[in-house]
Structure formats: C-alpha cells, structure tokens
Lab assay of single mutants.
Amino acid sequence: MTEYKLVVVGAGGVGKSALTIQLIQNHFVDEYDPTIEDSYRKQVVIDGETCLLDILDTAGQEEYSAMRDQYMRTGEGFLCVFAINNTKSFEDIHHYREQIKRVKDSEDVPMVLVGNKCDLPSRTVDTKQAQDLARSYGIPFIETSAKTRQGVDDAFYTLVREIRKHKEKMSKDGKKKKKKSKTKCVIM
C-alpha cells in the first residue's frame, strides 16, 4: 500500500485542523484551538488504489514558523489553505509557496490551493482571484467548507493525484537520464 505524506499549511484560523478532522473523523470542530502540530493517518481508496494518507496539520501562528522547514522537508505534497473571508490569509499563500519551493529546492512541488469556509456569506476573496492565482502557479484550486464537508475529500484526493503525477514524471525523467548515460565512448 502506497503511503502519501501530505502537509496542510496556511495562516492561523483558516480551518486547516477543521478540514483535516472532517476528512479523518467526519465531524466539524467549530471551536478554535490553535494547533502546534498534529499528525493523522487514514486509509482510503483513490482511483481504485488503496493508500495510506499521513497528514500533518501544522501551526499557522507566526511564533511556530521555525518548525516549518522541518515538516516541509518531509512532506510530499501540500494543501495551501486560505479562508475566503480573510484576504490576508490569501496573500500569505505566496509566502508559504515560496518557502516550500526553497526548502524542497524545487520549482515543481505537488500543491493544491484550497479556499476554505465557502459556506460563509462574508467572502472577501473572489473565486476568480483564487483561480487566477492557482493557474499562475500551475496547481489545482478547490473551494471547501469544513463545516458542510463540501470539497473536503476532493481537496485531499486531488493532492494525492498531483503527487502521483509528480512521481510518474520524475521516474520518466530518471529513465531518460539513465538511457543517456548508457551511451559509451570508444577510443581507438
């Protein structure tokens, strides 16, 4: 069974824990209790493949930012979460993405942009803004509501699919490099 290491990042209060708990335990946590770091595991079937999701729910508070490099190193894919009623959390996505790329030393890291709290009427981040940002990053965008469960499975499952595509691409690139290195030079 394939294991996928997913990391949920975003500013404090955007609903990272609520999304994760909704996926794992099928219930909505409405009281806000700032996370330092929590880890969850769940076995699911995605596109006919049974897999184990190892999900790291991270601290959004700035005082825990020193811990970010460590979990970013171990993560295979990242859910970059903002709240649709919090423009600052949307603007912060850029910083999370840049930090992930720096730590992973790669421009090509599996990510999904997630606009959470889409059940709320007080939207300050337009869907088109988020779609445009995701398009500019070359990553999928999904709106979710941890409260109603809308888009929750889709967000995590899409990230797994992005990781699969990335692994497939990397193995193809690896095979191309191996083929090239088999060419021999004969000096007579």
Score class of each variant (00 low, 15 high):
T2M: 15
T2W: 11
E3Y: 13
E3I: 08
E3T: 11
Y4I: 11
K5G: 11
V7Q: 05
V7C: 14
V7I: 04
V8M: 04
V8I: 05
V8L: 07
V9T: 15
A11G: 12
G12H: 12
G13Q: 11
G13Y: 12
G13N: 15
G13A: 12
V14T: 12
V14H: 14
G15S: 14
G15A: 08
K16T: 01
K16V: 00
S17N: 00
S17R: 01
S17I: 01
A18Q: 15
A18H: 02
A18T: 07
L19M: 08
L19T: 13
T20D: 02
I21Y: 14
Q22N: 06
Q22S: 11
Q22I: 15
L23F: 12
I24G: 02
I24T: 02
I24D: 01
N26R: 11
N26A: 14
N26P: 03
H27S: 15
H27E: 13
H27D: 15
H27F: 15
V29I: 07
D30R: 04
D30N: 06
D30C: 06
E31N: 02
E31R: 01
E31I: 04
E31F: 14
Y32V: 01
Y32K: 00
P34L: 00
P34H: 00
P34T: 02
T35Q: 00
T35E: 00
T35K: 00
T35Y: 00
T35N: 00
I36W: 00
I36G: 00
D38V: 01
D38A: 02
S39V: 01
Y40Q: 00
Y40R: 00
R41T: 04
R41Y: 02
R41K: 14
R41F: 02
K42R: 13
Q43H: 08
Q43V: 07
Q43R: 12
Q43W: 04
V44G: 10
V44Y: 09
V44H: 07
V44F: 10
V45A: 13
V45N: 13
I46Q: 15
I46E: 14
I46W: 12
I46R: 14
D47H: 11
D47Y: 05
D47G: 10
D47N: 09
G48Y: 08
G48Q: 11
E49Q: 11
E49W: 08
T50G: 07
T50Q: 15
C51R: 12
C51G: 08
C51L: 14
C51T: 11
L52T: 14
L52G: 13
L52P: 14
L53D: 02
L53M: 09
D54R: 14
D54T: 13
D54V: 08
D54G: 13
I55P: 01
I55K: 00
I55L: 14
L56W: 03
L56M: 04
D57F: 00
D57M: 00
D57G: 00
T58E: 05
T58H: 00
A59I: 00
A59V: 00
A59G: 08
A59N: 01
G60F: 00
G60I: 00
G60S: 01
G60C: 01
G60W: 00
G60Q: 00
G60D: 01
Q61A: 14
Q61F: 03
E63V: 02
E63Y: 02
E63A: 03
Y64E: 01
Y64K: 00
Y64T: 01
S65W: 09
A66C: 15
A66S: 11
M67F: 15
R68V: 01
R68N: 02
R68I: 01
R68P: 01
D69P: 11
Q70S: 14
Q70D: 04
Q70L: 04
Y71V: 05
Y71C: 14
Y71L: 01
Y71M: 03
M72P: 12
M72T: 02
M72R: 11
M72A: 04
G75Q: 04
G75N: 06
G75T: 03
G75R: 03
E76A: 07
G77Y: 13
G77S: 13
F78V: 02
L79F: 03
L79N: 03
L79G: 01
V81Q: 09
V81H: 05
V81G: 04
F82K: 03
F82T: 14
A83L: 03
I84P: 15
I84A: 14
N85Y: 08
N86Y: 02
N86K: 07
N86L: 04
N86G: 11
T87N: 06
K88N: 13
K88G: 08
K88R: 12
S89E: 11
E91V: 04
D92E: 10
D92G: 04
I93R: 12
H95C: 05
Y96S: 06
Y96H: 07
Y96L: 15
R97V: 15
E98A: 05
E98R: 12
Q99N: 05
Q99G: 04
I100N: 03
I100E: 09
I100Y: 11
K101S: 12
K101L: 07
K101D: 05
K101M: 10
R102C: 14
R102V: 06
R102N: 11
R102A: 12
V103G: 06
K104I: 12
S106V: 12
S106G: 12
S106F: 06
E107V: 08
E107L: 09
D108I: 09
D108N: 09
V109H: 01
P110D: 02
P110T: 04
P110L: 03
M111Q: 03
M111V: 08
V112Y: 12
V112S: 02
L113V: 08
L113W: 14
L113Y: 12
L113F: 12
L113D: 12
V114W: 01
G115F: 09
K117R: 12
K117Y: 15
K117L: 15
C118D: 09
D119W: 04
L120R: 13
L120C: 12
P121N: 12
S122I: 06
R123D: 13
T124I: 08
T124A: 09
T124M: 08
T124F: 06
T124S: 09
V125Q: 10
D126G: 07
D126F: 05
D126K: 08
T127F: 04
T127C: 07
T127P: 08
T127N: 07
T127V: 07
T127G: 07
K128A: 07
K128H: 07
Q129H: 07
Q129I: 04
A130R: 14
A130F: 11
A130Q: 13
Q131A: 09
Q131C: 06
Q131G: 12
D132H: 08
D132Q: 06
D132R: 05
D132G: 07
D132A: 05
D132C: 04
L133E: 09
L133Q: 08
L133H: 15
L133K: 10
L133Y: 14
L133W: 13
R135G: 12
R135C: 14
R135D: 14
R135M: 08
S136C: 08
S136V: 10
S136P: 15
S136A: 14
S136Q: 14
G138Y: 07
I139D: 06
P140L: 03
F141V: 15
I142M: 03
I142G: 03
E143G: 13
S145W: 05
S145Y: 07
A146Y: 01
A146I: 01
A146G: 06
R149E: 09
R149S: 06
G151S: 13
G151T: 04
V152H: 09
V152E: 11
V152S: 12
D154A: 07
D154W: 05
F156R: 00
F156V: 04
F156S: 02
F156D: 02
Y157S: 10
T158Q: 07
T158K: 09
L159N: 04
L159G: 03
V160R: 09
V160L: 09
R161S: 15
R161T: 13
E162M: 05
E162R: 08
R164Q: 10
K165P: 01
K165R: 07
K165N: 08
K165I: 11
H166V: 07
H166F: 06
H166Y: 05
K167M: 09
E168I: 14
K169G: 09
M170C: 07
M170F: 10
M170Y: 10
D173G: 12
D173F: 14
G174R: 15
G174A: 04
K175E: 14
K175N: 08
K175V: 04
K176F: 09
K177M: 09
K177N: 11
K178L: 06
K180N: 03
K180L: 04
K180M: 06
S181D: 07
S181E: 05
S181Q: 10
S181V: 08
T183L: 07
T183K: 12
K184M: 07
K184R: 03
K184F: 01
C185R: 11
C185L: 03
V186P: 15
V186H: 15
V186R: 07
I187A: 14
I187T: 12
I187E: 12
M188F: 08
M188Y: 13
M188T: 08
M188H: 14
M188S: 14
M188W: 08
